[in-house]
């Protein structure tokens, strides 16, 4: 059987219980336009509905940054990374954190939010959670403009490491996608799982090095601390933005990468396992 669906060699599909989908990844590629259009829908609906929504996406991390700068920088007197202003150091972490947390929340609610599509048409379901992540990324880009503004304000020049930034953005997205896929799939069966997300997001903000530098963590705990995948992501971000003189703690960074990869594998495999029954339960 040839793989190219031409008029002569026709696409033959066999449906059987438990049959593994050989063409899953190819199908995913075939549906790339649907991915783009769903992402575009989410983004345009978001910005059409509320200008406030847009402002909120920018203002919230900014306000949190101010509070953290005052509490951790002034009141607690924690040190910054290298010679970076404390506010800048916090905001450089606020960006990946917000990207991660909103991508995670959007992805986790995505299947339930698109129940109607799932029960009425076929397409690789992976498209839905991944498309919603795009909205979070657009918000991120807008906040990024603020960061640029702050750097100009503080007259802080980035170093060569800024070229690594896209890689860390991708890492933040992958870090959110793993758990996001898993939770959104679980959400279809057990609707209670959606309550986990606000908790993870709240809690995570404080256990991740957002308000403080991860250099304040005692040396012997740094590896354990890096089990939180966001530690690696945030450290990488800071390094890329603030300069090459405060590189991440590499063993910890490697561990964070492993954790991200593990969750991604878990998320995708769990998602694919449950995917076939989504339409029956949603």
């Amino acid at each position: 059987m040839h793989n190219t669906p031409t008029k002569q060699t026709e696409h033959l599909l066999i449906l059987e219980p438990g049959r593994a989908d050989k063409n899953y990844w190819r199908d995913l590629w075939r549906y790339r336009e649907l991915f783009l259009i769903l992402a575009w829908r989410d983004v345009s609906v978001r910005y059409k509905q509320t200008i406030i929504g847009l402002a909120w996406a920018v203002i919230r991390p900014f306000l949190t940054m101010i509070v953290f700068t005052i509490i951790f920088g002034r009141v607690a007197g924690l040190p910054s990374d290298g010679n970076a202003p404390y506010a800048l150091m916090v905001f450089a972490a606020m960006l990946p954190w917000t990207l991660f947390s909103s991508a995670l929340s959007e992805a986790s609610n995505s299947l339930i939010g698109n129940a109607n599509l799932i029960s009425k048409v076929y397409f690789p379901r992976l498209i839905i959670p991944t498309a919603t992540v795009v909205t979070a990324f657009i918000d991120f880009l807008i906040s990024f403009v603020i960061l640029v503004g702050m750097m100009i304000w503080y007259q802080y020049a980035p170093s060569w490491s800024i070229v690594l930034l896209p890689g860390f953005m991708l890492l933040a997205l992958l870090a959110s996608l793993g758990p996001g896929l898993w939770i959104t799939a679980l959400n279809v069966k057990y609707r209670d799982f959606r309550y986990i997300i606000p908790f993870v997001v709240q809690f995570g903000l404080y256990v991740s090095p957002v308000g403080f530098s991860s250099n304040v963590i005692p040396e012997q705990w740094r590896l354990v601390y890096s089990l939180n995948p966001m530690v690696g992501v945030i450290d990488g971000f800071r390094w890329a933005i603030l300069g090459a003189d405060s590189p991440p703690y590499w063993p910890g960074f490697a561990l964070s990468l492993l954790v991200v990869a593990f969750f991604l594998w878990l998320g995708i495999s769990q998602f694919r396992k449950m995917e076939k029954s989504f339409a029956d339960m949603i």
Binding site: E10, H11, L15, P17, N116, V121, D280
Partner: peptide, 29 residues
Amino acid sequence: ITEPSAGRVSIRGRVASLLEVGTGFHPEL
């Protein structure tokens, strides 16, 4: 859209399904 629980179906060709009018229509758009 849903997997069979028993038996088997073979289909030659692409299927488009219209199970509902306006699936995915978004009121804001």
